[in-house]
Design a protein around this nucleic acid. Structure first.
Lengths: 236, 236
DNA sequence: CGGTACGTTGAGTCATATCAACCATAGTGG
DNA sequence: CCACTATGGTTGATATGACTCAACGTACCG
């Protein structure tokens, strides 16, 4: 199937299917977004926006996976989060009137809707439930960021890698054979955990020796969730 | 002066002086808060709330300093941020309808106003400028959290310590003799940087040898900002 | 078939954590 | 008033987790 044959998704359908933040909008508001938005498609490796860019709108992910990351001094990426269908990205910059503090790059070919900043601002003004929902979203992300800070500061790389694997299971799920439904390079894994690529490789093969996972290239099969939980030290 | 002699501060005055988030409220709204809020005082070491608590309102700091932190597995604190006059804390839990993901403890004796959650929620409904302002605040904090994640993941302890010192200068300022206007234990410093107490002590005395700082117990005198900037690798 | 990106492994190094001992200070209670 | 205790600060010795560097294997791609 060619990409260009895909019809532009309707937000109301999208909102219902994904339970996204649009579910509190009125019929008219959804129609307005449908009218104003721009449908875009990106392939693996493409950039949606870069750190430092002034952003004129935000993206709602319809399909695919995007990584959101910051670039450190020596050019090393730190992955902050992933965006998947139903998620929105770049809303932080739009709302705080700051330039983008992250970059966004496609991990799996994706279809997104680009919604102009003015729409977002006007919705906040006109629909307080929607504003509240956005606040919930931002505050929830803030809580996750705080947890992550504590983890990176206090846990070992081994513990964090186990935790990240479980987090990926939670966010992207497993297929019928228990393969993780997202495939990342070793370097990308390292850039989430906050370590060197070689360390991830070594630890993964340790996990393999301990029959916690099975490795087939980028495909990771999860064999022992309990074991990983034990290593990661999460009881929540 | 005894604490109990201090009059309850008025929010309108507070808002004007500190430029806090209340500046977008109407006369009536400020009056309502003044009527509904509860004035509280705490001494160093006291706890405002603990991780896991369900919180029934948020705090606006009138004077003093509060540390907001998470507790790791072995009981080690990770300080997330400090709250000073004009700042609000615990709003995250109130807005996201989640239990507190942090604890708050007094660093310097403080006076705070406790504002019931319903007030915050109703203001969001009735005053969209205020909602927008809260969104800006949350999104801004999110950006800072992201930066911090990248720092902890990529920088050395030495770089981070220098950076934290500069951040404290920025947030709390220096007195006429260039002494940092906040005094923390070595352990607290370590719990911001995300390292061991002993490491902070050793690095601080290195900084002292390099005439970047001067140490008088908990009082830290900043002698060479440029030098610290160089070490910390921040150009922003 | 060479090139490029990714994955893997080994060896050496270093920053940082850990453990232990010790000192200073202040508050407490008998 | 003094021993007692707790808390915080400092220093040294030692251990080690994790990074770096380097070499090499593998696979895909034009």
């Amino acid at each position: 199937m060619k990409l260009q044959e895909i019809p532009v998704p309707f937000c109301d359908k999208c909102a219902l299917e994904t339970g996204a933040i649009f579910r509190f909008l009125s019929r008219d508001e959804v129609d307005m977004i449908n009218f104003e938005k721009e449908f875009r498609q990106f392939k693996r490796g493409e950039i949606l926006y870069n750190e430092g860019n002034r952003i004129s709108g935000f993206y709602c992910i319809h399909s695919g996976i995007i990584k959101v990351f910051k670039t450190g001094l020596d050019g090393k990426e730190q992955i902050i989060r992933f965006a998947k269908p139903g998620d929105i990205i770049a809303y932080r910059s739009v709302l705080s009137s700051e330039v983008a503090c992250t970059s966004a790059k496609v991990i799996e070919d994706c279809q997104v809707c680009f919604i102009p900043a003015e729409i977002l601002i006007s919705l906040i003004k006109s629909n307080s439930s929607y504003a509240h929902e956005l606040l919930k979203l931002a505050c929830h992300e803030l809580g996750e960021a705080n947890s992550f800070i504590t983890d990176i500061a206090q846990k070992t790389v081994r513990e964090r890698l186990a935790e990240i694997l479980l987090l990926l299971v939670h966010d992207f799920g497993l297929d019928e054979q228990n393969y993780l439904q997202i495939s990342l390079t070793r370097e990308e894994l390292a850039n989430i955990v906050g370590t060197a690529t070689e360390s991830v490789i070594r630890l993964l093969s340790e996990f393999k020796s301990d029959t916690l996972v099975e490795l087939n290239g980028r495909k990771i099969r999860i064999l022992d969730m309990k074991g990983l939980e034990k290593i990661s030290n999460v009881f929540n």
